[in-house]
């Protein structure tokens, strides 16, 4: 496996507070990496750094061997980096299928999109709507969706976007147990085509999906390894899991 993404000595400080402090992280192509850590450990900031929401104060970020440290978000997205945010963010005033049309962004240029009229219906749209169970809601404005449906819509948008690297910030937040199980099934399907970096608190969910876990603590990598390895790691227990009891988090 080759490295898809590489962060080296990355630092971010907000008014002197170092949210990320000398972070080294590599993600191999086709991997599913879980980021764990207590609140404020720097997990979301790490995702922000990769997708371009936050600029590092030091260090470098490389994607497919090329530096992306200083390029704007939309260019990173065009290179194949997709992001799901912690708070489900869809376009409220647009319908479900319009949301998905915006997510279909292989051709993001102005001129080309001036020529395309409306939503391009077809197998791919149907498949994705079916996949997330929104087939009968396609023409509903997304502000009328339930919280769970909104989460699914955003995941569907990421599938539509078809990024090589997908960054997910707490994809199961606010989901029921059944929905969480469904999500883990979806993740297994995504695995075959995409590389995923997932921030997650739910240890049960992490056990279902993860192969490799990176635990962060105070802006640095505390430990890396398989699920069992991490669960038995003393430093991790002390810093994070132990405080609330493993599996309970």
């Amino acid at each position: 496996m080759t490295d898809l993404l590489e962060l080296k000595g990355v630092e971010v400080s907000f008014d002197g507070f170092k949210a990320v402090d000398g972070l080294d992280l590599t993600v191999a192509e086709g991997e599913l990496l879980c980021l764990l850590g207590a609140n404020g450990a720097g997990k979301s900031t790490t995702l922000d750094l990769i997708c371009g929401k936050t600029e590092p104060t030091a260090g470098s970020i490389r994607y497919r061997g090329k530096s992306i440290t200083r390029i704007p978000e939309f260019r990173r997205s065009r290179l194949g980096i997709g992001r799901k945010f912690q708070v489900p963010s869809v376009f409220k005033e647009l319908t479900v299928e319009q949301n998905l049309e915006v997510a279909r962004s292989r051709h993001p240029g102005v001129m080309r999109n001036l020529r395309q009229l409306g939503v391009r219906r077809g197998n791919r749209l149907d498949e994705i709507l079916e996949l997330v169970g929104l087939a009968d809601r396609r023409e509903v404005r997304s502000e009328y969706l339930s919280h769970g449906e909104t989460q699914w819509l955003e995941i569907a948008m990421l599938v539509m976007q078809d990024s090589q690297l997908i960054l997910m910030d707490e994809p199961t937040a606010g989901m029921t147990i059944a929905e969480t199980t469904q999500t883990s099934e979806l993740f297994r399907r995504l695995r075959s085509r995409h590389t995923l970096v997932v921030v997650e608190h739910d240890m049960g969910f992490v056990r279902q999906i993860a192969e490799r876990i990176t635990v962060m603590h105070q802006g640095r990598v505390l430990a890396e390894g398989g699920v069992a390895e991490i669960e038995n790691n003393r430093a991790v227990r002390d810093a994070y899991l132990g405080s609330r009891g493993i599996g309970h988090a």
Partner: peptide, 11 residues
């Protein structure tokens, strides 16, 4: 609706 979000789709 959500400027930020659109950027992460590459527009």
């Amino acid at each position: 609706s959500n400027q930020e979000r659109v950027r992460y789709f590459g527009y």
